[in-house]
């Protein structure tokens, strides 16, 4: 069996109605191996239905209308530039405006974020200040004495350490 020829005919049969000669060749090829295209009848019928769909009605002056519209567009945009849009002033102005808008929005967003962050920080400080209130004057009265006492190791402490060492040994 000529497989490439069969594949080609099947592909063709899916795109358009086959001619009598093509159909005869297809049938001859399939006769040897009907399983190669078991859905042949439905496939051929579907192609027939699809290819018989009528054209959409087209206005006789369609192309004239298109060309008139092109004239209007051209007139509106001025004389057509021979340069691509990205090379023209209009192209650059548009790009610059776009870039400025993006940068402006980014800066505004960043400033807004900074402002929000500062407000959050201030709120945090205020909360901590309330929790860790300054000790009263009564508590701080003997501060100097206690501070000095802590810095100088007493003779008792030294002795206690010696005793501990002896006990460990």
């Amino acid at each position: 069996m000529n497989q490439p020829q069969l594949d080609q005919l099947i592909e063709l049969a899916r795109r358009r109605v086959l001619t009598g000669e093509e159909l005869a060749r297809l049938n001859a090829l399939l006769e040897a191996n009907p399983a190669a295209w078991p859905d042949r009848d439905a496939e051929l019928a579907l192609t027939r239905l699809l290819t018989r769909l009528p054209d959409a009605p087209l206005a006789s002056n369609f192309s004239t209308r298109v060309m008139r519209e092109i004239e209007i567009v051209e007139a509106a945009t001025g004389r057509a530039s021979p340069f691509p849009a990205w090379l023209t002033l209009r192209g650059w102005v548009g790009r610059l405006a776009g870039a400025t808008a993006v940068i402006g929005l980014s800066v505004a967003g960043w400033m807004q974020y900074q402002s929000w962050q500062r407000a959050e920080f201030a709120r945090g400080i205020a909360t901590i200040s309330e929790v860790a209130a300054v000790p009263s004057v009564e508590v701080l009265r003997d501060f100097e004495a206690i501070h000095t006492f802590v810095r100088v190791p007493s003779a008792m402490e030294v002795e206690a350490d010696t005793s501990l060492l002896a006990a460990l040994q």
Binding site: R16, T51, R52, D55
Partner: peptide, 11 residues
């Protein structure tokens, strides 16, 4: 239902 007519393709 089978055959449709043999009108030329118009799609």
């Amino acid at each position: 239902t089978g055959e449709w007519d043999n009108r030329p393709s118009a799609t």
